[in-house]
Design a protein around this nucleic acid. Structure first.
Lengths: 334, 334
DNA sequence: CTGAAAGCGCTTACAG
DNA sequence: CTGAAAGCGCTTACAG
């Protein structure tokens, strides 16, 4: 493979001149620049990334940490990964994707060997074991999901409390006084997925303030349990006139279940959910819902990280930023 | 950050000795080894990946190229990505994930800057623009999916011809003489997804050999078109007693459509498909199907690549390997 | 069993 | 506007 030395020789200049021609960090006469460019093309030269990283202490790579839980409904995760990858590339970074089970150890390995310039964490839990490791790393970190301790990192998440209030309010305005709430799976609570209780608690609080009856259930994960549970809940609560679903597996299964029972939406039951537009399209979900904006969240996390990698001093205070929930009315309530 | 020099000084040895202690490439007295180990722990030393890559010409990173088509039914892709990531890590490699639209250019960038030791391609098309670039690269390449030109790369794919034959045979044995075939979307054919016509052509060939009537349709991609089309097809072909579905979006929608029409499986219609076990679980698909084995395919591609990266000479001839289809009987035929 | 030195391929002050 | 040289942090023949 051609090195910068080969290019320099061919162009009859020094290696430093080639380097500067490449970076544009000092002015070069147009003649030499042309000769260098020619030599580069002829030799098919591309700077070696490792050498460059060693010289500059910059890898132009972002480490992306994703968890995939075998027992979870996974198609949603991709909606975060893609915008993150796109946003990174737009800023000139590549993505090192890490899916290891022992994420804290992998995080230590990747950061302390300086394989990346920054870290994005997905699936962040309330007491996330990756956070202390990240805080000790040289590289800045950014994430989607709210951990208990947010100092030293940039945090982005949907405003789940407000999302819950919007949906309860939406149903209250339409006169509903008895509502079923399907929350994420029990293990999401156990694992510390803060969005689960942030949404549930806000919904319960708002309901009780209005004297609305709310029946809360932690959803099942896998079929056929999901369908069975939905049926049991509907049997249990014939008085409920509406349903709030904060659970991907449950909402994806709901159309079939309701259809089987001959329950019409919104005539017999009002249904609202919280999911991304793309998820809704994938499963043809006809329900009014709060948009979870994975695209916006992923991109924001990368942009904040890039700002900090480029200029740690100028990036300002670390912050928790909540994306404002928007409701999309699909006519599934009345 | 501590360097190998810091460790050497602290342990009172030379840098080379530290390096050899790390790699185990020559014997070290147990005393010095202990002193070195102590110094490493005290200083929290981890070798710099860039420096190591520069010195060894090995990055221990694999480039993974994935396409995500906005108009495609995407949850299936993740089933390949995960096993690939796992298999890579087991062999000591990390994954650089590239999702760029202009994949050929990205591939050239990544390989010629020596960011990776090898390449895995997903979503390979018949006339894939990435293949010529890959063939010119220094790094070996491995892929899932069958391109028109396979020299210089390792290729893994399901045996789609045999899959089609197995399913036609399965229905023929049960006396079916009139079968609907739903193939992948039209754009999959246009884009050169060879699996689409390999399966379809083999199915048609086998059907015609037995004098079985087969009605072939290219499936729709997005809802609500998917449901509408399935209904039209069923209206069109009341004489059909069975259905073969080679289309993720269609098979995911099928339970609802059949239910709505009051068509019982297998009493009124026999249905077989071709999808992974995990995909079937995700959508609760009750259909007998050929298993697509994304796990096995992804892992095999990585293993072949690792063999070639470790010892290009010993890895032997490049080959196309087809995974043998296995049928899982879920009782949806008779 | 261990060390001194060269080299991997870049970038960037320092000089002119 | 350009060059010679030092340095980034490793590994690995070469010597002893």
């Amino acid at each position: 493979m051609a090195t910068i030395g080969d290019v320099a020789r061919r162009a009859g200049v020094s290696r430093s001149t080639v380097s500067y021609a490449l970076s544009g960090k000092r002015s070069i006469s147009s003649e030499t620049r042309d000769r260098i460019h020619e030599a580069i093309v002829e030799l098919g030269f591309t700077p070696n990334a490792g050498a460059r990283a060693l010289a500059t202490s910059q890898t132009m790579v972002i480490g992306l940490f994703v968890h995939f839980f075998a027992d979870e409904f996974s198609p949603a995760m991709l909606q975060y990964v893609l915008p993150i990858s796109d946003a990174a590339r737009e800023a000139g970074y590549d993505i090192l994707m890490v899916t290891e089970t022992d994420a804290p150890q992998a995080l230590r390995r990747i950061t302390s060997s300086d394989m990346v310039d920054g870290i994005v964490l997905l699936n962040v839990a309330h007491n996330d074991a990756r956070i202390p490791v990240l805080r000790e790393a040289r590289q800045p970190g950014s994430m989607v999901g709210l951990p208990s301790h947010t100092d030293g990192v940039d945090v982005f998440d949907l405003d789940f409390e407000e999302s819950a209030r919007i949906l309860v309010e939406h149903l209250r305005e339409r006169g509903h006084r008895s509502i079923i709430l399907i929350t994420p799976q029990q293990h999401v609570f156990e694992r510390g997925g803060a969005y689960a209780w942030r949404f549930r608690d806000a919904a319960l609080e708002r309901a009780s303030r209005y004297g609305i009856q709310m029946f809360s259930y932690a959803g099942e994960t896998q079929q056929p349990a999901v369908n069975r549970q939905l049926n049991e809940i509907l049997d249990d609560r014939p008085e409920a006139t509406a349903m709030i679903v904060h659970n991907d597996a449950a909402i994806a299964a709901l159309p079939t279940v309701l259809h089987d029972r001959g329950i019409g939406v919104p005539d017999d039951l009002s249904v609202v959910g919280i999911f991304s537009e793309e998820f809704g399209r994938l499963f043809s979900l006809p329900y009014t819902a709060v948009e979870t904006s994975p695209d916006e969240l992923g991109r924001s996390a990368v942009q904040a990280l890039v700002r900090r990698m480029v200029d740690p001093a100028a990036a300002g205070e670390y912050a928790v930023r909540f994306v404002e929930p928007r409701i999309t009315d699909r006519g599934s309530t009345r």
